[in-house]
Design a protein around this nucleic acid. Structure first.
Length: 655
RNA sequence: GCGCCCAUAGCUCAGCUGGAUAGAGCAGCGGACUUCUAAUUCGCAGGUCGUAGGUUCGAAUCCUACUGGGCGUACCA
């Protein structure tokens, strides 16, 4: 495609005398095979620009276009589309060249950019949960993809290792801690303390919130009643308006009463546990005490600092275990604590730049276009995550001098990043491209954010365990595995379930455009049917089966192979699809959206399935044809394996 | 109140700086196995792209208003 665009660009220049922006990149796969392989849509905008009929422009472009080497003569169709059909020998030779290239014809990128990706970034004081999937999986896929394209990628896990969560654990240990448990099983003990403190705080919050919630519900109920009367007795002229007000009132009433019910339910659960209530009653001031412990830690209090230093390695072990499972790693893990000493300097710098000022006791940066300021220091003197983010930005700029920094963070933090970037801009960092790579929420089957029935967030590890268990049930059918030669043994079955289970979760996440919310449905994710990880992994296993049976050495096959024959439609379509690998990576790059790669791999797996159905390889009955088709099979194997690897998903040789 | 995002087939979702007859999967119906892995594949059916205007040769895509939903909004991250 870039080849076409390049030639088109020359033709366009001949036509426009370089007197217009280029539309040569408007080449894309055709919407329908009857129009050829690619269509160029640049004639229409050019026609508008020069006030000439589009078909005339298209004809002029075609005349100037020098693509005879790899294309059949282009045709002008419809309002001015230029349809291009690649010559089979060109496709075949390109496929062979791709097979012989370690990089599958991709890159190296030009220009090579230094891209820093900030992703995952969990709070380490509490167990990872479902909310960490997206940042981790998307960030990892982008890092792998951009690196493969030839960019210089730096990954940095900006851990939450210094915040209120540690204040909670410190408070928990001081009051409820068990020294022996901490020594024998630190991770469980720390997790227990976090959960307990969190629960106590939640309980007191609920108690405190209940009266106000009840009142809000009562008011909403009264408002609904009066809205109802207005509808019943109001003037006809205002009927529509009144009805609308009633609808709104009813909605508010239902929301507020639901909130009351939610609080009451949680209190009922808590009160059933008398031991817990006794404990909670003894710690009424826990919320402020936790903040005090956090503040003491930040001030360098020796006891709290010692506890923090004691806890942190265990918290790190805990998340590292999950990263190992997910096969995710980082070049750097510079948590919030790393920047602590720089925070005062950030505030000073902002003051000196005339950006920060005092307001209501806090140090704030007021920015045009925002109602609320960015607060960089609280009235009690503590710093906030905005301060840390700025310190981090300055540090990264100074140490790594990246061209681009990507923040793979929940879309709800959009406003925070707008402010952060605005401040960076005001401080003269405008040549550094900052980008909030936002993503939507993971929803449960009910369309609400994915939670357990009791309202807690779902633990990441238990989710992975469940995915592996379900994958095992779907993929490890004993009758089937016995049919393979040799039969799959227990170890191999386990590694299959592992690859499919973890792959399913990653694949499903990456299959949706990152900015949309999606429904988490494990059953669908591990299914062998449809656009799933298992389907693509299975396609690879089939490909691999043929290669091993045919004795193909995938590393050597390109050395003495000939360009494949593409007489069958399935052969040609498969080859053409394989050639588009690089194009889809460009799409991923342009929009920071791995779902383009997922779609591509699914298309490729489908194209292969059709080929597999209609084109025998080892049984083609003709040695030349067998060799030709083995080239396509081997290239399919490499593309699927490489593509899945860029998504962080493993392939298995058999399944 | 203000701001951001979303609304596409029964369901879950794609749809690439505006392009030809809006796609896929699942679910439904009907075909194809002396298979190199049928865990596959082929066909059928299914859509006023939330509503109403506007811009354009051309709008799911851009603009405006409206409807419905989600999220954010001064010292959590």
């Amino acid at each position: 495609m870039s080849l076409v665009a390049g030639q088109l660009s020359q033709a366009e220049t001949a036509f426009t005398k370089a007197d217009a922006e280029s539309y040569a990149s408007m080449v894309r796969p055709t919407s329908d095979p009857q129009f050829g392989d690619y269509q160029a849509n640049c004639a229409m905008p050019l026609a508008k620009r020069f006030g000439k009929p589009p078909r005339e422009v298209a004809a002029a472009l075609v005349t100037a276009l020098d693509v005879d080497e790899f294309c059949h003569p282009p045709e002008v169709a419809g309002p001015g589309f230029i349809n291009l059909r690649l010559r089979d020998p060109f496709i075949a030779e390109s496929a062979l060249r791709m097979l012989g290239d370690q990089r599958l014809g991709v890159g190296p990128a030009s220009p090579v950019l230094r891209i820093l990706i900030d992703f995952s970034s969990p709070n380490v004081a509490k167990p990872m949960h479902v909310g960490h999937i997206r940042s981790t999986v998307i960030g990892d896929a982008l890092a792998r993809t951009f690196r493969f394209m030839g960019h210089e990628v730096i990954t940095d896990n900006h851990l939450g290792d210094w915040g209120t969560q540690f204040g909670m654990v410190i408070y928990g240990f001081k009051h409820f801690g068990d020294e022996e448990s901490l020594q024998t099983d630190p991770v469980t003990e720390l997790s227990r303390l976090y959960r307990l403190v969190n629960r106590v705080i939640g309980y007191h919050n609920a108690v405190a919130e209940l009266p106000a919630a009840r009142q809000a519900a009562a008011e909403a109920s009264a408002a609904t009643e009066s809205a109802r009367q207005a509808v019943a007795s109001g003037e006809p002229a205002a009927a529509k308006k009144n009805q609308k007000a009633l609808t709104a009132a009813v909605r508010k009433e239902s929301a507020t009463t639901a909130r009351v019910a939610e609080i009451e339910a949680s209190l009922a659960v808590a009160r059933a546990d008398t031991e817990f209530i006794a404990l909670a009653s003894a710690h009424r001031e826990i919320a402020t005490s936790v903040l005090t412990e956090t503040a003491k830690l930040h001030r360098g209090d020796s006891e709290n600092l010692a506890l923090w230093q004691r806890f942190l390695p265990h918290c790190r072990d805990e998340i590292d275990r999950v990263y190992r499972r997910l096969d995710v790693d980082f070049d750097h893990t510079l948590g919030e604590s790393f920047y602590h000493d720089m925070l005062a300097g950030v505030v000073t710098r902002l003051r000196q730049a005339g950006l920060a000022s005092d307001s209501e006791g806090a140090v704030c940066v007021f920015l045009d276009g925002f109602d609320a300021p960015m607060i960089v220091q609280k009235k009690d003197g503590a710093y906030l995550y905005a301060t840390t983010d700025l310190a981090t930005l300055f540090y990264r700029q100074q140490r790594f001098s990246p061209d681009e920094i990507l923040y793979v963070v929940d879309t709800r933090q959009g406003e925070h990043f707008e402010k952060l970037f605005a401040v960076a801009d005001r401080l003269g960092l405008s040549d550094l491209r900052l980008r909030h790579v936002n993503f939507g929420t993971v929803l449960g089957a009910d369309g609400r954010p994915f939670k357990t029935r009791s309202g807690a967030s779902v633990g990441l590890e238990s989710l992975l365990d469940e995915a592996v268990a379900r994958a095992s049930a779907v993929v490890c059918d004993p009758e089937r595995s016995a049919k393979l030669t040799p039969p799959l043994d227990a170890d191999e079955l386990r590694s299959i379930a592992d690859a499919v289970g973890h792959g399913a979760i990653k694949y499903a996440d990456l299959a949706h455009h990152r900015s949309s919310d999606y429904r988490f449905d494990l059953e669908k994710m591990v299914s062998l049917e449809g656009n799933t990880s298992a389907y693509v992994q299975y396609a690879y296993a089939r490909v691999n089966g043929i290669m091993s049976k045919g004795g193909v050495d995938i590393e050597r096959i390109a050395d003495d192979a000939k360009p494949p024959v593409l007489d069958a439609p399935a052969e040609r379509n498969l080859a053409l699809t394989l050639l588009r690998f690089g194009e889809c990576l460009e799409q991923v790059r342009a929009d920071y959206a791995p779902n383009f790669l997922v779609d591509y791999l699914y298309d490729t797996a489908k194209a292969y399935a059709i080929f597999n159905d209609s084109c025998p390889v080892l049984k083609a009955g003709d040695e030349t044809l067998t060799k030709s088709r083995l080239v396509l099979v081997a290239l399919t194997a490499r593309v699927l394996r490489q593509g899945l690897e860029l998504l962080g998903i493993k392939v298995i040789p058999r399944m």
